[in-house]
């Protein structure tokens, strides 16, 4: 059976983003940093709006904004676990900036086209072009490789920071780099699953994997496997039931799996 083009694109982009989200998500959950992911997913929205207001390429604005705010959070947080109040206050400010750019766009001449363009960035998996899907796949694989490269020291730094420091692991720098990776992930996943949904792909498969095993290697593999299966099941669901948007379908399946592991 020949797959329709949009479904092939969705499968390619979705699978690679699921790969990255399983790996990054496992560390995000381990470090208790899901709130930072939440904040960064909203930053992506503001970044795109800011770029639209300034007349820049939306992608540039999106990536710049998420990485900058990720670095800001990492530096302000001080410790490896950025504290929730700091994240929250920065988050509120970013939302406020979003409102400002929105009003600038809506009041400016011909500005509403910028808003529409920013909205299309938060498109659905079914709306990706072949080029967009390939770029998403490339970034997803690059992120996965980066996390795997950092894996061992990051694991030690996350579990036992004093011991890691004693062994010469640069705990602080690792925390900053990891949040920057989370920023890149948020910027890319925003365009595929939508800013409001990437949080679930980050939290649910990893949360389930952490419940099922304490072994880091098995946990990472399990998180990736669950993320991949949920993405494929969600895409199939959304393909057959037209009323269900693909991003939502993926999230609902992933949340269902997580809820099941709670019952085990």
């Amino acid at each position: 059976m020949e797959l329709p083009g949009f479904l092939g694109n969705a499968l390619l982009a979705g699978s690679c983003i699921a790969l990255a989200s399983g790996l990054i998500g496992w560390f995000v959950v381990l470090r208790g940093q899901v709130f930072a992911g939440d904040a960064l997913s909203h930053v992506a929205f503001t970044g795109a709006l800011a770029a639209a207001a300034a007349g820049l390429d939306l992608r540039v604005g999106l990536f710049l904004a998420t990485i900058l705010v990720a670095l800001l959070l990492a530096l302000l947080g001080g410790r490896a676990l950025a504290d929730d109040v700091t994240i929250g206050v920065v988050f509120v400010w970013v939302l406020g900036l979003g409102v400002l750019f929105l009003s600038l766009l809506n009041s400016g001449a011909g500005g509403s086209s910028g808003t529409i363009a920013a909205r299309t960035l938060f498109g659905s998996l079914f709306g990706l072009s072949a080029g967009q899907a390939q770029l998403a796949a490339l970034i997803g694989v690059a992120l996965a490789l980066a996390v795997l490269t950092l894996g061992r020291p990051l694991l030690l730094a996350s579990i036992d920071a004093p011991l890691a420091r004693a062994q010469g692991v640069p705990v602080r720098a690792l925390g900053v780099v990891f949040l920057a990776l989370l920023g890149v992930y948020a910027a890319e996943a925003t365009q595929a699953v939508g800013a409001l949904l990437l949080l679930g792909l980050l939290a649910a498969p990893a949360g389930a994997a952490h419940r099922l095993t304490a072994n880091p290697y098995r946990g990472l593999a399990l998180a990736v496997a669950i993320a991949l299966l949920c993405t494929w099941a969600g895409l199939a669901l959304a393909y057959w039931i037209a009323a269900v948007p693909p991003g939502s379908a993926v999230i609902l399946v992933a949340a269902g799996v997580y809820a099941l592991t709670m019952l085990l």
Binding site: V29, L30, R31, G32, Q33, V34, F35, G37, D38, L196, L197, L199, G200, L201, L202, A203, A204, A206, G207, H210, R211, A243, V244, P245, G247, S248, A249, I251, L252, A254, A255, Y258
Partner: peptide, 26 residues
């Protein structure tokens, strides 16, 4: 645990958005 709590809250929020979009589309 702190880790599980942050994963649960994140999942609840994502389900909130997802359910909202599905209900809106229905």
């Amino acid at each position: 645990s702190v880790a599980q709590q942050s994963a649960v809250i994140g999942t609840v929020q994502a389900v909130g958005w997802a359910a909202g979009f599905v209900l809106l589309s229905l």
